[in-house]
Design a protein around this nucleic acid. Sequence first.
DNA 1: CCTCGACGATCAGCAGACGCATGGTGGGAG
DNA 2: CTCCCACCATGCGTCTGCTGATCGTCGAGG
Lengths: 225, 225
Amino acid sequence: MRLLIVEDEPRMATALQRGLIAEGFTVEVALNGPDGLHLARENSYDAIVCDIMLPGLSGYRIIEALRAEQNWVPVLVLSAKDGEYDEADALDLGADDYLVKPFSFVVLLARLRAVLRRGVRPRPAILACGDLTLDPAARAVRRGNVEIELTPREFSLLEYLMRRAGDAVSKADILHHVWDAHYEGDANVIEVYVGYLRRKIDQPFNRHAVQTVRGAGYRLAVDGG
Amino acid sequence: MRLLIVEDEPRMATALQRGLIAEGFTVEVALNGPDGLHLARENSYDAIVCDIMLPGLSGYRIIEALRAEQNWVPVLVLSAKDGEYDEADALDLGADDYLVKPFSFVVLLARLRAVLRRGVRPRPAILACGDLTLDPAARAVRRGNVEIELTPREFSLLEYLMRRAGDAVSKADILHHVWDAHYEGDANVIEVYVGYLRRKIDQPFNRHAVQTVRGAGYRLAVDGG
DNA sequence: CCTCGACGATCAGCAGACGCATGGTGGGAG
DNA sequence: CTCCCACCATGCGTCTGCTGATCGTCGAGG
């Protein structure tokens, strides 16, 4: 397992490096932001351990840049900040975990292993199908650069369909995940809401973004219609 | 997005439920370990938020049981313990994240979103015979790159034949698997539906993709006709 | 090679299921 | 009170699944 540590404080960097090497990892170290981003771009690591406060380029920007380039390497953030919004921001930018200094080495190890176990699947913080995008954290939907206003129900429905983009999703599934497990009403609500959604997210002269799969349910076009 | 909360303290459970519902999630609650495990087994959640100290069955055991059954639903653990080894244990058992009480709701949300990003996606499983492909998850059939629209019955018939491509499949088998085990009607339906299929999936100037084996049934050509 | 019977293919038609639009109701927030 | 959101009910047009009848084809035996 090959790791990159991005940490500007030399003593911390060295301590981490020693500890992780002792645990059997292959470890490289960058002492500032730009170097860290450069190394992360040029090499393929199994995970990155990254400080937030870095000279030259903050940890936030590094994660943002990597994710924008479709680089889904797991990133574990270290930070002296313990504000809840700092943590939430880092995670919503695409970090995989967040540890507040001072932290225990055992915990770091466990979290590192948890993050490594998940591997490098694409897990964008913002869902996209063609030029249709949905940001779960900001609860925002856009077609290109145009923001689309959705009601809460419409939003949940679209989010669920986008997380399963390309799959045919049955109405029972939709009812369970977007409405409620013991929802008793008519499945007709789904049809109504798909109708609402289409009016808002479809573009003229294109096919529906939400396709009907007769007898099976609905499918969100991977290219967003 | 459908969540399960397993938490024995009623006030905490209710608070979480309210907050998460307000964020647009579909939420169910279990107030003890056995109920939680039961619900997790019977239903399909997008994520589980699980306390560790539970009456009847600890959170550890729940995760362990689910993972042993190949259930990889993302689990976010909550705990009042702050011993570092507890945390390491939970993560190594297959939890996906860990929060120590008291925690910030904003952070819980962000971590939940991070955990939801990866989802559970065993993708491939696309059946192919020559350039004829069938994707059961997407409920899509194509000849080359051209999408072919099939009705539900046509689709299940083709799926069954493709899963047994190259075999001669008897009409009794087809009736059992595509129709119903105790279907009483005329076996002529099969002939009718094979006809429908051929019209849609055969290419001109080629032999039938679904070949007739006189007196025995039908066989799907391995090369797709 | 021809005949005949059994098996398979095709067709038209119908009943019911399905999906969609629309307008209406009710309840909660401001 | 007003607005908006979630949901319900109705009606319509289309599609699907199936039936029953007819037509075509294969192949064994003479």
